[in-house]
Simulated scan of single mutants.
Amino acid sequence: MTTEPYAIRLAVPEDIPAALQMKLKSWEEAYGSQRPASFFANARAALEQQGDWWIRGLAQGAELWIATDPAGNIVGIAGGGPAADDDSDTGIGIELQLLYVLAADHGTGLGGRLLEAVLGDRAAVLWVLEHNPRAHAFYAKHGFEADGRIEALVDDWAGLNEIRMVRHGAQRG
């Protein structure tokens, strides 16, 4: 399958409810074996509050990229922003903060197109779950390398770790 059927554009406030629903579905697909059902129920219950937060972010200049299929359904989202202070040791100022594509659209090149929309070929840092080999391979294909930093997650994500991956400059894959 090629990526031509997908349109990628910046989100507008009206896109946020559907984008959050898509993100939750992606979480269920990717993390269903790593989180209890109550995790997803809690996330579903918080969608309206999250939506308000995301809409405020867009109003303040945050960028969220969405990918839609020919029917207009959101099938992927991605966003980035300034790297967290904790990542200042990398010397990189941009963080890929989220990138989700529905499982049915994996392998189409859509994730790479969303990554390109957010970062281009700039240096960047990202955090990814330690036990997510598909994501590790995807990011490695696009020039990111694990740098050895691991952090334990807290709250709803407690019991899982994230690893930091960095890309120093132009995309290599």
Rank of each mutant, 00 (worst) to 15 (best):
E4L: 08
P5Q: 04
I8Q: 03
V12E: 14
I16R: 02
L20T: 00
M22S: 08
M22C: 11
K23Q: 14
K23Y: 02
L24V: 02
K25P: 00
S33I: 06
S33V: 13
P36E: 12
A37C: 05
S38R: 11
A41Y: 01
N42G: 11
R44K: 15
L47C: 00
E48T: 09
Q49T: 12
Q49S: 12
Q50Y: 03
G51N: 06
D52F: 06
W53C: 09
R56G: 11
G57F: 08
L58Y: 05
A59N: 13
Q60V: 05
A62D: 15
I66L: 15
I66N: 06
A67T: 04
D69L: 06
I77H: 03
I77W: 01
I77Y: 02
G80C: 08
P82I: 10
A83E: 07
D86L: 01
D86M: 09
D87T: 02
D89Q: 03
T90W: 09
E95W: 06
E95Y: 09
L96C: 04
H106S: 05
T108L: 07
L110T: 03
L110R: 04
G111V: 10
G111S: 08
E116G: 10
E116A: 15
V118Q: 06
L119D: 07
D121F: 06
A123C: 09
E130F: 11
N132I: 03
Y139K: 05
K141I: 01
H142K: 05
H142A: 02
H142V: 03
G143Y: 07
N161Y: 07
N161M: 02
I163D: 02
M165K: 09
G173R: 09
